[in-house]
Each structure stands twice: as structure tokens, then as C-alpha cells.
Design a binder for these strands. Structure first.
Length: 462
RNA sequence: GGCCCGGUGGCAGAGUGGCUAUGCAGAGGACUGCAAAUCCUUGUACGUCGGUUCGAUUCCGGCCCGGGCCUCCA
């Protein structure tokens, strides 16, 4: 089966053909670590995690290099640290840790390489020297600027021309710019600001330079996929292309540009004043990370996604259904042993959906079909086969890898077990009044009991 | 103002030139001491106006509505 991806550069869905199938390379823009990540930041994390897993599955583990950077030098960081009265290093360390915790909580596997901007200052300086030598960049008043008119193709990715950008410019043009559209590669730092020595004095990099430097360092001058949110198309990715292509005109830089759509929250653009600003950490107090992940994957990645807590609740209901199906496996094993046929086939419709430009909603529909098959299973062998298929399909999406008992019951609860035992005894004695009393008591605590053929099980609902 | 994306049943959300996903919620039924789960049945959706076509939700155009980007927000 073949993989197709929508390429922003050509605005078409294209057959994916890696430069080197033995080393498929993907670079995704990671966070600027100035604050705890919000649910909008989590969307690209989850999407590109699915893509990375799909690539690993297709080309083999060890044949995919997934790089996701951390931008730890930026004016927003400087400002936030000043606001908080916090040391910059403390701020970036704290927010980086929050980022890692949140990413893991929504089921993302760590990227193969996670470079930090501040570890690549030397590479950035070399890149600027190269650009200056080729007359694509110039120094002015301690700044280094990229000269946009030096690149005729500038604007191709975002589909805009220079005149439009100048006409739309809302910011006053700095006097040292040769052209209003020129952008900053390097800027001087005051004594209080973080800075590094350079041929142009002590300073720090502009926003776009770090990604050009880091992708080159870790993936080479040409690589396969470059990903991020649509809002990065312009100016960030446009400028990365300008920097990297002008520095290395014989290379292709990234070949497939993959961008995820914007996320809205409760029907509106997320903002702190509207009360719809959700950090991942905050949401994790209310919902399992897996429910957040499913809620994010229920829309196609290029579509705008209206995130809502109701949507997460619905995702959790769906996960309940999947985990109920997976729980049949335990029941089957506890009952009859049966033939130990654990062979299963990963549902082809799920894989096909993902290979068609990451159609996760269609893949999830395939998960439901797989769950139906579990519920229809008639023998323990069928249960083992169908649950195996469901779980394997879930793995493609980074879902359903938890033990069903843990999903429903968490760490367990001896008091609940004791009440259930008492209720089973009461039912055995036909004391249904007492049995119902216990059910009501547990219902009030958000515990749902199920009397099945294999005994009584319970789950938390809330 | 410029550029771009979208408007699908109560909600979420795929997809297709004719056979009308999937889930959540709802209704009826089977099953169940009760309940839950599961299974069965059920609801005839594609913003609007034109055009192309034997036939359009799907292609083309106008309009309306919503959203995004336009120098540092994923």
C-alpha cells in the first residue's frame, strides 16, 4: 500500500516517496518554551506522532528519524521570565518538563532527536555567514537581516507575493532594513538579555533561523517531511525555506510540507479572557490523556478542529466501548482456555485510511468495526483473534494500549471490592433489596456495576 | 483590503457523480431479579441560487454565513 500526503507546497495530495527509504527523515516544529502547553499545541504533537508511527511501521523502526525541536531562546521567553521574576533557565527547564509530561500523557512517543536552539548557535552563525557571502543577507546596526528581494521565488509556500506583504504590513518598518519585507536573522542583545558572541557583536537569533540550522544539523540539507501548524506557513516556514535554500541552492530542503489545521475551543478562538483556554495539564485533571488524544484525532488533521469538553466526554465514551471489547479477552481467558490461537490481522481498512493522508476519522470508524467483530466473537479463539486485531489497529493511532481493567478501575479499590462481594452474597440469598441498596450506593460514587456471565465487574463513570 | 479554508442528519465527523460512513445522544424492542453491556429496529442530512449532466451533497460559477493568515501564536 502506498502513502499519500497533502503537500502544502503544491497544494495537492501526493504519493510519498522518501529520498532514502532506509532513513526517512521528518522535522516538526516543536514548542517555544515560555509557558505550559495548551490543547492547541497538543494537536500537532499527536498528529505527527501518528505520522511518525505510520512511517516506522512502513519503513521499519530504525529507518525513520523524527526530529522535533525545542526553541529555548525567544523574546517571549525573555518577557515571560521578567514578568515572573524567574530566571530564564528555570523558566525554560520548567516549561520543557511540562511539555514532556503533557506529550507523554497524550500518548506521544518521544522523537528520535529533540534538539535545542541554544545548542546550535554556532551552526546558526555559520549559516548567516554563508548567506552574507552569497549576498542573501546583510549586517545593519548589529543586526543580520535576510534580504527577501534576493530570492525571486520567495513566497511560494504561502502563496503570496512581496507586494501583497508590504501592502499588508502592519508593523512599522525598521529604518535599517533595505527592504520592508526583510526579516531578522540575528539581533543585538543588551547586557541583561541572553546573548552569544558573534562576528556582529553579542546578540541572539531571530525566530526562524534555529529551525534551518537544526534541521540541517540532524537531517541534512535535504530531507523528506517538514511539519507544523498552518499558522507557521507564513512567515516561519516561508523564511526557513528562504534561509535554507539560499544557503544551499543545489538542495531541495524539505520535500513534503505537512500542516495541521487550527484548533478552536468551545466554538471560539482560544483566549484566556474567554475562559476557553485549556492547558493540557488542566485538562488532565478532568480527563484521561487518551480521551484527549482521541478527541484530537476524531477530526482530519487539515480540518479546523473545534475542541470542546463535551467532545472529550464523547471520546471517553467511545474509548469505553473499545476497552469493553478488549476486556472480553480477559473474560475469554478466564473462562474456557480454548485453542491458543493468537494470530490476528491488522485491519486493512484502518491502515488504508491512515495511508490516505492520515484520515484518522475514517481509521477510527475502522476501530469500531473491529470492536463489532469482538462483540460478535463466539469462541475464545475468536475473542483472542479479534481483540488482537483491535489492539493492533489502536496501536497505529497510539490508542488502546492500556489494560482494560486499569482503564475502567484505575488502581482498584478494596472498599468497592468488598461491597461487590457482599452484593454477590446477597444476590445468592435472593436478598435483592440489599443488592439494590449496594448498587445505589456505588452508583452514587460513580461506580457502575455489570452483572455478566463471567461474574460482576465494575467501572468508574464520571 | 489581499490570500486561503470550510459550511453534511440533535451533536461530532468521514466520504462519494447514481448504491446515502462511523460514533455520541434519542426512541422502540430482545436480553436482564434490577441495572449495565450487547444485539435488532428507527430517524431519509449534505448553506443558497444558477449551470454542466440521463442523474450532483459530490464538478463549475455567483451569493450568504463562519473561520484562519497577512513579520515572531502549533
Amino acid at each position: 500500500m502506498t502513502l499519500h500526503l497533502h503537500n502544502t507546497y503544491t497544494r495537492q495530495k501526493e504519493l510519498f516517496e522518501p529520498i532514502d527509504p532506509a532513513n526517512v527523515r521528518m522535522y516538526v516544529c516543536g514548542p517555544t518554551v515560555y509557558d505550559d502547553i495548551h490543547i492547541g499545541n497538543a494537536r500537532p504533537l499527536v498528529i505527527f506522532d501518528v505520522l511518525a508511527q505510520l512511517l516506522r511501521q512502513k519503513y521499519g523502526i530504525g529507518h525513520v528519524t523524527y526530529v522535533r525541536n525545542i526553541t529555548d531562546v525567544d523574546d517571549k521567553i525573555i518577557e515571560r521570565a521578567a514578568e515572573n521574576g524567574e530566571d530564564i533557565d528555570a523558566l525554560t527547564a520548567r516549561t520543557t518538563e511540562n511539555f514532556h509530561t503533557a506529550a507523554a500523557a497524550v500518548g506521544c512517543v518521544a522523537p528520535d532527536i529533540e534538539p535545542r536552539a541554544t545548542d546550535h548557535i554556532a551552526q546558526m552563525i555559520a549559516l548567516m555567514q554563508n548567506l552574507i557571502a552569497k549576498e542573501h543577507a546583510y549586517e545593519a546596526e548589529g543586526h543580520v537581516l535576510f534580504h527577501v528581494p534576493s530570492m525571486p521565488e520567495y513566497g511560494k509556500l504561502s502563496g503570496r507575493n512581496r507586494d501583497e506583504m508590504i501592502a499588508g504590513a502592519r508593523v512599522e518598518v525598521a529604518p535599517y532594513k533595505r527592504d520592508p519585507s526583510d526579516f531578522v536573522l540575528w539581533k543585538p542583545s543588551s547586557d541583561e538579555q541572553p546573548g552569544w558572541d558573534s562576528p556582529w557583536g553579542r546578540g541572539r537569533p531571530g525566530w526562524h533561523l534555529e529551525c534551518s540550522a537544526m534541521s540541517e544539523e540532524h537531517l541534512g540539507r535535504s530531507f523528506d517531511i517538514h511539519g507544523g501548524g498552518v499558522d507557521l506557513v507564513f512567515p516561519h516556514h516561508e523564511n526557513e525555506i528562504a534561509q535554507s535554500l539560499c544557503a544551499h541552492p543545489d538542495e531541495s530542503f524539505a520535500r513534503y510540507w505537512v500542516h495541521n489545521g487550527y484548533l478552536m475551543s468551545e466554538g471560539e478562538k482560544m483566549s484566556k479572557s474567554l475562559g476557553n483556554f485549556y492547558t493540557v495539564t488542566g485538562l488532565l485533571d478532568e480527563f484521561p490523556g487518551e480521551a484527549l488524544r482521541l478527541a484530537l484525532l476524531k477530526s482530519h488533521y487539515r480540518q479546523p478542529l473545534d475542541f470542546s469538553k463535551d467532545g472529550v466526554r464523547e471520546a471517553r465514551q467511545e474509548l469505553n466501548r473499545f476497552y469493553r471489547a478488549l476486556g472480553m479477552r480477559t473474560a475469554a481467558l478466564e473462562g474456557e482456555v480454548g485453542p491458543k490461537d493468537t494470530s490476528y490481522v491488522v485491519p486493512a481498512d484502518v491502515v488504508a485510511a491512515l495511508q490516505d493522508d492520515l484520515n484518522t476519522p475514517l481509521a477510527i470508524a475502522g476501530l469500531h468495526v473491529a470492536a463489532d467483530a469482538v462483540f460478535a466473537a463466539e469462541t475464545p479463539a475468536d475473542v483472542l483473534r479479534t481483540t488482537g486485531a483491535l489492539k493492533a489497529a489502536g496501536r497505529f493511532l497510539g490508542l488502546l494500549q492500556t489494560d482494560p481493567e486499569v482503564w475502567f478501575q484505575g488502581d482498584g479499590d478494596a472498599a468497592i471490592d468488598a461491597l461487590i462481594a457482599e452484593r454477590i452474597a446477597a444476590r445468592g440469598a435472593k436478598d435483592f433489596a440489599r443488592a439494590d441498596e449496594i448498587r445505589d450506593e456505588l452508583t452514587a460514587k460513580g461506580v457502575v456495576l455489570e452483572d455478566g456471565a463471567g461474574g460482576t465487574t465494575w467501572r468508574r463513570e464520571g
